[in-house]
Design a binder for these strands. Structure first.
Lengths: 136, 136
DNA sequence: CACTTATTGCAACATTGTTGCATTTGTCAT
DNA sequence: ATGACAAATGCAACAATGTTGCAATAAGTG
C-alpha cells in the first residue's frame, strides 16, 4: 500500500491550514518513495518560497508529526512521511549500504537483550545495515 | 574498566599531533562518563580556543575515529570516546529518559535477530531507552 | 462577502560553519 | 638541545544557516 493520501488530506487530518508551501513540501514527499533530506526539499520547493516560510512550514510539519526525522549511520539525516507503521515502537529500520534506501521491517524477529543490573528498558531503536534483496 | 588512557596516549595511538586544543577536548571526554554534546564541549574548552580551531580539532578527532557520534531519538546528537569496546560492532547505546545521559554498554548481552529472506546483515546499531541505575 | 486569525514575505539580525594566509607549534632527525 | 619541516593555530573576512518583528496577505468560518 502506497500513500493514498493527498497533501490536502494530510493537512486537514492534522488540522493545519492548507497553504501552498506546506502542500509543496508534502507533494515532494508524496512524489518520492524514499526519505528526503532537507536540502532535497529545499531544491524542490524552496525556490518558490521565502527562506523563512520554508523553515516555518517545515517545522510545522515536523512538530505536527506529519513528517518525521530519520538518522542513518549517526550521520545521514532524512525525513519521511509519518505512517501508522512508522509510529509503532520497537520496529526495525533497515538501511541498504548498496542502494542507500531505508525500509521498516515488520516481520517476526526475536530479541534477547540482557541489560546490566539497574538498567530498565522502555524502548529500543534498531538500525540494521546491510544489503537488501534487490541489491544482493 | 574505565579509560586507562590519557589524552596524550589517545592522540599518539591515532598518529595525531599533540596540541592543546585536542587534548582539551579529549580531557573533557575522559573526565566524563557520559557522552557529550557539541555545545557541552564548546562550553568547556572553546572559551580558550578560537572557534575555527575548535571546529577543526573536533573534526580531526571525529575523522580519525577517536570519538564517534551518537544520535538519540533521531534528534539529540552527542559524542563519545571510541574505545576498543566501542569499536566492536553491535555494541549498544543506552539513553536514560530520566537524566538524558547516554552511555555505551559493553556488558555481555545476547542478541538474536532474524531477518526476512534476501536481507543480509552487516552491522547493527542499537539504542536502548529507559532508566539508568542512578535514576531508578 | 466580510471577519478573524494564522501564514507569508521582507528586512534585519544572530548564529554557525568555512576559507586563506601569516604565525606559531609539534615532531623528528640530527 | 637545536634546527628544519610539516602541521595546527588564530585571525579576519566571508558564506551559509537559522531567527525575530512586523506589515501585508491568504485561509477558514459563518
Amino acid at each position: 500500500m502506497q500513500h493514498p493520501m493527498t497533501a490536502k488530506d494530510l493537512l486537514q487530518t492534522h488540522q493545519l491550514k492548507r497553504t501552498s508551501c506546506r502542500e509543496g513540501l508534502l507533494n515532494a514527499f508524496l512524489a518520492s518513495k524514499e526519505a528526503l533530506s532537507e536540502s532535497d526539499l529545499r531544491d524542490q520547493v524552496a525556490g518558490s518560497y521565502d527562506r523563512t516560510t520554508f523553515y516555518r512550514s517545515f517545522k510545522t510539519l515536523l512538530d505536527a508529526g506529519v513528517i518525521h526525522k530519520i538518522v542513518v549511520d549517526n550521520t545521514l539525516v532524512k525525513y519521511a512521511l509519518t505512517t501508522p507503521l512508522t509510529r509503532q515502537h520497537e520496529h526495525v529500520h533497515f538501511f541498504c549500504t548498496c542502494c542507500h534506501t531505508i525500509q521498516c521491517l515488520h516481520s517476526p524477529m526475536t530479541f534477547n537483550l540482557e541489560l546490566p543490573m539497574g538498567f530498565h528498558r522502555e524502548d529500543v531503536e534498531i538500525l540494521i545495515k546491510g544489503t537488501c534483496p534487490t541489491c544482493c
